[in-house]
Computed example of a mutant assay.
Amino acid sequence: MKGLKFLIVAVILAVIAFSYWVYSSLHTPNAHDKGNQYIQIQHGSSPGQILAKLAAEGIISSQTPLKIYMKVTGTGNEMQAGEYQFDSPITPLEVLEKLRKGKLRTVKLIVPEGFTRFDIAKRIVGEFPQNKPAGEDSVLDLMNDNSLIKDIAPEAKSLEGYMYPNTYDFPRAVNTEAILKKMVEEFRKVWKPEYASRAAKLKLTSHQVITIASLIETESRLDEERPVVASVIYNRLKKGMPLGIDQTAVYIAKMEHRWDGVINRSDLESASPYNTRKVVGLPPGPISSVSKSSIKAALYPASTNYIYYVLNVEKNDKSHNFYSSAADFERGKAAYQAWLAKERK
């Protein structure tokens, strides 16, 4: 009997000791050297595989305490796949809580207003170098599929103008098709159904409105000024005057893979239908991404008789001076060129 009592007491003490060890282990921070690294937990990993991975990386010192805890609490299947950063030191329970909440590592894709599809393709490749198929040309090929916008602009040859400028958060493993789809979805949030009706009242297609919006986008950085810039475009179209927007020359150079950061005389002499110095009317399509402000300006231009504008060098706030006569425009242009010459010295 004494031996049995001793055995019982020994077992009880052992259970208490073991329970204390488990409790203590779960609450004791473990130091490791992976605090600045991401630990990837693959989809489909079992709880045992996840714990083995964490132990191998040194995030936890022992698998046993967490195995027991998850068995008792039934939380083993709550751990999620993802890419995690674990502070050092960190307790096993804190590790488990992170895994239960889930953490998907994301990459920011910043698409500024006025970016062309060529700029966007370059940025996608830069931010997501692991995407397949690789390379800017492959991304541009995907942009040439207009199925995402066919209901809005059946005549569009690419997604140019329909990839909304914004800051996006994408999973690191996202594919390019999903990126383009998301940007077009953002455009659709801005393009209201009544805008198509407004375009029809202007005797324009939706695609032509977006084309005008892209011209406005590249010409003016000020929201309040854009309806006035729009009025110049419409006035020139009515008069049969070339629009003379130099950013179309930049677009041509980018299309032909020869843009070097400077508008050359050869760019302005190009026979491309996008050359608004030579060709009367609108270019075949948009030349950049467009903001809500530029779309509204294209749909609701100001009522003016202006047909010229020049950067306002006196204010130096990116605004423009507007003119209705060639003589006034030439004086304004001369002042601008004189200022530009000083700036270049």
Results as ranks from 00 to 15, higher is better:
residue 153 A to W: 05
residue 324 S to P: 04
residue 334 A to H: 01
residue 173 A to Q: 06
residue 340 L to K: 09
residue 105 R to T: 01
residue 321 N to T: 09
residue 53 K to Y: 00
residue 244 G to I: 11
residue 123 R to M: 10
residue 202 L to I: 11
residue 58 G to L: 06
residue 334 A to C: 06
residue 237 L to A: 06
residue 76 G to E: 08
residue 2 K to L: 11
residue 39 I to W: 04
residue 19 S to A: 15
residue 79 M to K: 03
residue 303 S to L: 13
residue 317 D to Y: 13
residue 90 I to S: 04
residue 331 R to I: 06
residue 200 A to S: 13
residue 287 I to A: 05
residue 152 I to L: 08
residue 175 N to V: 13
residue 1 M to Q: 09
residue 16 I to V: 15
residue 245 I to M: 14
residue 332 G to A: 03
residue 327 A to I: 13
residue 23 Y to S: 06
residue 263 I to M: 03
residue 175 N to G: 03
residue 70 M to E: 06
residue 85 Q to E: 10
residue 164 Y to N: 10
residue 222 L to R: 12
residue 73 T to H: 14
residue 35 G to L: 09
residue 42 Q to Y: 09
residue 117 R to I: 15
residue 317 D to R: 12
residue 334 A to W: 10
residue 308 Y to Q: 01
residue 263 I to N: 07
residue 183 M to C: 09
residue 60 I to S: 00
residue 212 I to Y: 01
residue 130 Q to G: 11
residue 308 Y to S: 10
residue 289 S to V: 11
residue 322 F to E: 00
residue 266 S to W: 12
residue 288 S to F: 14
residue 74 G to F: 09
residue 155 E to W: 06
residue 291 S to H: 04
residue 187 F to P: 02
residue 244 G to S: 05
residue 172 R to E: 06
residue 93 L to I: 14
residue 234 Y to E: 04
residue 245 I to P: 00
residue 268 L to M: 13
residue 95 V to K: 00
residue 122 K to T: 14
residue 77 N to H: 12
residue 241 M to W: 11
residue 318 K to I: 15
residue 200 A to F: 11
residue 258 R to Y: 01
residue 343 E to D: 04
residue 81 A to L: 03
residue 5 K to G: 04
residue 69 Y to T: 03
residue 157 K to V: 12
residue 163 M to S: 05
residue 257 H to Y: 11
residue 199 A to M: 11
residue 246 D to Q: 12
residue 12 I to C: 13
residue 62 S to D: 06
residue 95 V to S: 01
residue 26 L to F: 14
residue 39 I to G: 01
residue 59 I to T: 01
residue 104 L to N: 09
residue 323 Y to P: 03
residue 26 L to G: 12
residue 95 V to N: 00
residue 138 S to N: 07
residue 40 Q to E: 15
residue 316 N to P: 09
residue 317 D to P: 10
residue 124 I to A: 00
residue 163 M to V: 14
residue 192 K to G: 02
residue 6 F to V: 08
residue 33 D to H: 15
residue 288 S to G: 09
residue 290 V to P: 01
residue 162 Y to A: 08
residue 168 Y to L: 09
residue 62 S to M: 04
residue 88 S to C: 11
residue 322 F to R: 02
residue 320 H to N: 01
residue 329 F to D: 01
residue 138 S to Q: 11
residue 59 I to H: 00
residue 44 G to Y: 05
residue 2 K to A: 12
residue 77 N to E: 10
residue 199 A to Q: 13
residue 190 V to D: 08
residue 130 Q to L: 14
residue 251 Y to V: 01
residue 213 A to L: 03
residue 164 Y to P: 04
residue 289 S to H: 03
residue 217 E to T: 14
residue 205 T to E: 04
residue 310 V to L: 10
residue 210 I to L: 07
residue 239 K to C: 08
residue 160 E to S: 08
residue 253 A to S: 10
residue 345 K to Y: 08
residue 92 P to W: 02
residue 312 N to T: 05
residue 157 K to G: 06
residue 9 V to C: 10
residue 165 P to C: 13
residue 302 A to W: 10
residue 337 Q to A: 07
residue 209 V to C: 02
residue 16 I to H: 03
residue 92 P to K: 07
residue 53 K to L: 04
residue 286 P to A: 15
residue 308 Y to R: 05
residue 98 K to G: 02
residue 99 L to G: 03
